[in-house]
Structures are given as C-alpha cells and as structure tokens.
C-alpha cells in the first residue's frame, strides 16, 4: 500500500476496532493502543516486508516485529487482522474464554502474527536481539522491529539489552519507544522521571532518531524509512516517537486515565462518532 491517504483510511477503522474490543469485555488498554495506531498501520501496511497469509514462526526471509509492551494488544490484534493474519471477525473474541486473542499477546494459542508472549514488561528488546542474531547467522538481511512503552524503560532488563546490542553490533534492529509520557499511576515524570532518553540511549551507543509527531502517519513512515538507512553501520537504531495516549478519541487524550479503562456505552458511541467506519466493522 503506497499513498498516505490510503494508510490514513485504515487508521480510524483500527481505532474503532480498539474501542469496540475493550468496550465489549469492559477491560483492556485503549489509551496506548490509540496512541500507537499510526505506527502500527505504517509498519504493517507500508514499511515491513511480511507475509500475512502464510505465517511462519521462524520468519526467515521476512521482517519481524516484537511488541514488548504487550498490554496494547488491541491495536496489535486489529492491525494483524486487518493485514490478513487472521479473520477480522475473530476480534470479537478478544479477552473472552477460549480466545486466541488473550489479554496480552501470546504464542500459546497459536495466533498468526505473534512470535513471543509479552505483558510482563521489559523482555521484548532481548528477544528481538536474539531474533536479530538468528537473522545474522542465517544470512537473512531482513529487519527486526520492536515497540516499547516509555514507562517500560524503567525495567532494568531493557538496559542490559541496550548495552548488549551496541557492544555486539546488532545493527539489524530498529527499536521504537512510544513516548506518550504516561504510565498507570500518572505521568512518567511524576512516577519515575527518566531524564533525557535520547541522551541515555546515545550514551549506550545507539543511533537515536527522534520523531515528535508519532500520530502523523506521513512522518512515521518517513522516520521508519530513515531508520532503515541507518542500519548495517555497526549500531542498533532507536526511534523515540512522541505520541498522544488516547489519540483520536478526544476525551481519552491528555491524561493517563485511559491506560487500562474501557469506555461505557455512551463513551463508546462518542468515540465511534469521532472515527469513521472505513473498512467495515468486525
């Protein structure tokens, strides 16, 4: 899919999927999901080389994506389904008994598109580095992408992984941090200020690219394209991407409160009114 206009058409549909999924089970994480919608749509409909119809765990010959902050599963599931990994109607099973769409993503139920369980934070960067090393051993020149929450960077394992990736020149990985500045108990600055993440990752030897408008699909696509040109030069690449938690649903924005809260019937109706049905609801 090429034009930005076409990508922009997918975005409101994914937002509808997200709010409808969490509303249906009165649980889940809409805030971070909405904030990362443009990133996921860019990745799966434009940037990544991947094969949705014939999912293969090893993913040799494809780009790979790992979601480290697994709680934003609604956006991950919606985009996987819309990209063709599994039937869109399966989104209706989210968080319900016997579903493949568990509260946090898992390989355990055999859902196409998911290559690792995530939810307990801080583990995805290490896993992605392992997959990137396997690609190097396999002489597979495709890329490994990850997404992390900014609050997630408070986990120590992230920094073990960050140190390793530089030291061992893992230069076929593009990690992105969703800089929405929010976590469960409040803003990241009020919970545990992390200072300059750019300075920190640069001090750890990463090639850091900033995107201050992660909710603008054109800039996200451009940033990911730029990041790709930085690979293969001995350094891992990090995108620090500023987003607005709850983006696209006005009453969910500018607060940490919609991190893990589902909308009621009235709020759902309001959210849907703000996002046009472009591809057909599930």
């Amino acid at each position: 899919m090429d034009s930005t206009t076409e990508l922009e058409k997918i975005v409101p549909q994914v937002r509808r999927d997200i709010v409808r999924m969490v509303h249906a089970v009165n649980s889940g994480h809409p805030g971070g999901s909405l904030g990362c919608t443009e990133f996921f749509v860019s990745l799966y409909f434009k940037v990544m080389k991947h094969n949705a119809n014939q999912f293969n765990m090893d993913g040799v010959g494809e780009d790979l994506f790992f979601l480290s902050n697994g709680h934003i599963s609604p956006v991950f599931y919606s985009v996987l389904a819309r990209a063709g990994y599994f039937p869109v109607k399966e989104l209706a099973t989210f968080r319900k008994l016997n579903t493949r769409l568990q509260g946090h993503p898992t390989t355990h139920e055999g859902l196409s598109g998911v290559r690792i369980a995530s939810g307990s934070l801080g583990q995805g960067l290490s896993v992605a580095i392992g997959a990137a090393l396997a690609k190097k051993l396999n002489k597979d020149e495709n890329i490994v992408y990850t997404l992390h929450g900014d609050g997630e960077l408070q986990e120590g394992q992230i920094w073990e992984a960050a140190m390793y990736a530089t030291a061992k020149k893992v230069d076929n990985i593009i990690a992105t941090v969703d800089m929405n500045g929010q976590q469960i108990d409040g803003s990241t600055d009020s919970v545990l200020p992390m200072g300059s993440l750019k300075a920190k990752f640069e001090a750890f030897g990463w090639d850091v690219i900033s995107n201050d408008n992660g909710n603008n699909i054109a800039t996200v696509v451009e940033t990911l394209a730029t990041a790709k040109t930085h690979l293969g030069k001995g350094k891992p690449v990090m995108i620090l991407m500023k987003t607005e938690m709850g983006n696209g649903v006005d009453f969910m924005m500018h607060s940490h409160k919609w991190h893990g809260v589902a909308p009621n019937d009235e709020q759902l109706a309001q959210a849907l009114k703000q996002n046009e049905e472009t591809l057909g609801d599930y």
């Binding site: 765990m57 290490s126 392992g130």
Partner: peptide, 13 residues
C-alpha cells in the same frame, strides 16, 4: 535476564 530473552529470540529462526 537479557541472556534468557536473547535465547528465546534465537529460537525464532
């Protein structure tokens, strides 16, 4: 912790 995660990732491939 990083070692276990990298090991898990290496299986993918």
């Amino acid at each position: 912790a990083n070692m276990i995660g990298i090991a898990a990732g290496l299986t993918i491939g």
